[in-house]
Nucleic acid binder design. Structure first.
Lengths: 234, 234
DNA sequence: CAAGATCAAACTGTCGACAATCGACGATTA
DNA sequence: TAATCGTCGATTGTCGACAGTTTGATCTTG
């Protein structure tokens, strides 16, 4: 295995875990909207662009396929997943299901350290709100929710959350702007944490439902507002 | 693309969706315990055995990796996933989380047709109970639970269920015998369906909790009873 | 005899090549 | 003119090969 010829502009891919790196690059390109939904992912093109051969690209594509970012059409290639309104509903429905459970478990496992982590993350959310960087804001938002799943202590659930988040990142990225006032978003996390600290399952579920349900409705509204997705190139 | 040289004993792989077929064969070998947990999956070996090259085998392995049946160690290869007691807990915890939700949704979407499907499946469970075919019994059991997820109408949730089921099949396959009397198993599905037909969310959740919780405890007990998993061959 | 160094075989990661297939475009025909 | 067919370039699916790494065995040395 040798070092890879430097692709233009981007830092060169080094030699370990090429597949993982290609997967990350592809994911980036998709959630940033550089590869719009419905567009064809030409193996040779990606390979040339990244300065690798097609084999690692194909393997990475399989990963993203399993993650739901790509769709494979045998003999026709990989295509960037297109989302419809009911996809949004599915994702949020599943997310609600997972996060309710995670929050209840997290409350059960809560220690002073993990509690502080959550509090600190809400602070970060407030700080980020001033930065006018929607992508960053979304990222820090997920980090809070991810923390809850982490604290819940079920690794499979955490992976599921990550998968859902990567699909959502794609959707949010396409919407292009934040669906709400950043400070407002930061604030709405507080009752969730409060409920977790209080530790009453019903209250936790209620607050998680409210919080996620809010995002669900907002995203759903925006998606329906801009129905023809941004130019499914090719 | 040409036809594949016939592997010994098994029907030859034809030319379409080679990756999918290899994946199925591998899954089979794993859940049947022919590839024991911890064992190394040698790409060239599998490839030779199936009469294909290593490329499709690698791609299939990536699929199974994402599904959790294989673990990839960079530069060392793919290994059959090993389950510990806490894996069982994670899987059942997640399954509980999903099936509660699915059952409530299924109740909401229930039509006379889907209701009959569920009833019929319980009959099948009873019929299968007489056959003394544990694998079949487990399969029909899953089919009932899968039906609920199907009726719930969230495709992502259905896929998640399938992934969990394939992990569980592997575990159950390793245990080798059924964890309970087949007729008893068939019977315990009835209250779940009854609750879904009645349509009270709390009752549905309670019955699903009881049903799945029972399997959880039984499987957990058996796993702890036979702690050293069957010879992690090499 | 144990611990470390040395070496060979086995295996993985990646590549380039080639045939089969797809899709677009233009020619042919009714 | 519209529909069908054939051709050609572009792209996928698969393969065999090669380089570098890991592994396990053997040999060396304290």
């Amino acid at each position: 295995m040798r070092t890879i010829s430097p692709p233009v502009g981007l830092p060169a891919l080094n030699e370990i875990d090429l597949v993982g790196q290609v997967a990350r690059r592809l994911t980036e390109a998709i959630v940033q909207g550089r590869l719009p939904p419905g567009s064809k992912v030409v193996e040779a093109g990606i390979a040339r662009e990244l300065g690798v051969s097609r084999a690692p690209v194909r393997e990475a594509a399989r990963l993203l396929e399993q993650q739901g970012l790509l769709v494979a059409n045998p003999r026709r290639g990989f295509f960037v997943r297109q989302f419809a309104a009911d996809d949004i509903d599915e994702i949020y429905d599943l997310r609600l299901c997972v996060e309710r459970h995670a929050a209840v478990l997290a409350a059960r496992n809560l220690t002073p350290e993990t509690r502080d982590k959550l509090r600190r993350q809400i602070e970060v959310l407030h700080e980020t709100a001033d930065l006018d960087d929607p992508a960053r804001q979304v990222e820090e938002d997920y980090r809070f929710h991810r923390l809850i799943c982490e604290i819940a202590g079920n690794r499979r659930m955490l992976r599921l959350f990550d998968d859902l988040a990567s699909e959502l990142r794609m959707v949010i990225g396409l919407i292009g702007r934040l669906y709400d006032d950043p400070h407002e978003i930061a604030r709405t996390h507080e009752p969730v944490l409060a409920a977790i600290e209080a530790g009453h399952p019903e209250r936790i579920v209620a607050h998680v439902d409210y919080h996620i349900g809010h995002a669900w409705r907002e995203v759903g509204r925006l998606v329906r507002e801009i129905p023809p997705w941004p130019a499914a190139a090719k």
